[in-house]
Design a protein around this nucleic acid. Structure first.
Ligand SMILES: [Mn+2]
Ligand SMILES: [Mn+2]
Ligand SMILES: [Mn+2]
Ligand SMILES: [Mn+2]
Lengths: 217, 217
DNA sequence: TGCAAAATTTAGATTAGTCTAAATTTTTTA
DNA sequence: TAAAAAATTTAGACTAATCTAAATTTTGCA
């Protein structure tokens, strides 16, 4: 099949493709913590295998078969994250690196049985959708808290920043996936936001946090 | 830490050390399906890292730190096999290759929680002991069925051959781990063995099968 | 629109792991 | 106990994935 490195590149290209239809060499290098020259080498290899469309100096995008592989890796990543949190009681900020390794376990049968064992979860611990075995999934329309008005409410359904410090901060504030919140105030001066959870807890978050916390209305 | 290849070599050396205290280059090559020259290269590398004792032309054995790593890989392998059979309902003949990949997942915390999740199983689906997180385990004294006399009985507790065809055959004959059997006859001519299970089922097995099926008395 | 800066690719190395073929050492055996 | 055979190591190559430094192409802005 594909090597671990190839799989990581395809996944990165997939994620970067969300916000632009052509992905640049430097973007990939930054995402994977490698050098642009290494990326160029790999792009040639992936293009050779018809997993990406690549024109020198013009960036890349995934072919249908490349996208299929990428989505499968993401499915495995998110199912393992769910397993680690729901079955092994890890916190949502602890599971990313482990899933980064586990997503490369190759057996399709294994992942389908894992999916079934857990009752076909629809979302991973960070609120991201888990593709089904055919690669199908739908992305909910989420807005950052910073886009809400005073008195609007919604359900915390995702995060834009997946780093540990951010996730730990949210957990401490009890701002976790599934919680209902209502905006109580927006401070003009620094765009910080005051809100309350359904347990009437009052929380005040910075503009940056509000930008990275996603809501379904 | 160690690369996947290094881990596989250490594990192989460990297994081969059971029946001889020095393991030869060719034995390792056969076990890992590589060439002797590749093995020599790796032995130099492992000796350099002080994981094995290696003298040119004289074979190798594990140092204490090499053994510790090997046992940890085996612990992970067997725990994942147990998981696959007990939680994901795989058959005992289907899990080896998957565990071969999963044993390289690095997190110690993960494997300890997996162990706990499953209730600290003592044996894998093939009857092999699962080392605890300190690497401790005890090997039961097992005998092949071929070493029993007529009318002796015992509990099926392990297999010497881990290949699918053998495991499938045993399963079909209902000769699985935990079953109690009694020898009813031993045929002089071909050393085949007749036995009955606790459900009174009569089974006749060849000398070869009797040699590879292990019993605790 | 034309140059400087930024982005990207190429050239040339390096490391890990593997291989084949040849050389060397050990073991067997006549 | 000296060949012959078997086992092992060395020599030299190859692939995958990286890197640094230099060359090339694109882009942006004066
Ligand atoms: Mn990964
Ligand atoms: Mn996630
Ligand atoms: Mn393995
Ligand atoms: Mn086993």
């Amino acid at each position: 099949m594909n090597t671990l490195a190839e799989e990581n590149y395809l996944k990165s290209i997939y994620h970067l493709s969300i916000s632009a239809d052509n992905v640049s060499t430097n973007q990939i290098a930054a995402a994977l913590n490698t050098k642009a020259s290494s990326v160029t080498d790999m792009l040639k290899k992936l293009a050779e295998k018809a997993l990406i469309n690549y024109t020198r100096y013009q960036g890349v995008n995934l072919t249908p078969s490349g996208e299929k592989i990428a989505i499968n890796i993401i499915r495995k990543h998110r199912l393992w994250e769910y397993f680690l949190v729901e079955k092994l009681n890890f916190k949502w900020d602890q599971v990313h690196d482990m899933a980064e390794e586990m997503e490369h376990i190759s057996s399709a049968e294994l992942i389908d049985r894992l999916d079934e064992f857990m009752g076909h979860p629809r979302h991973d611990p960070h609120g991201d959708p888990i593709p089904d075995s055919e690669g199908r999934f739908k992305t909910a329309e989420l807005k950052p808290v910073s886009a809400l008005m005073v008195n609007q409410c919604g359900i915390i359904s995702g995060v834009r920043d997946h780093t540990s410090p951010f996730l730990q901060y949210l957990e401490k504030q009890q701002l976790t996936i599934g919680k209902k919140i209502t905006i109580t105030d927006i401070i003009e001066y620094d765009h910080s936001v005051a809100l309350k959870t359904d347990t009437e807890k009052e929380v005040h978050i910075s503009r940056e946090v509000a930008n990275n916390l996603l809501i379904a209305l």
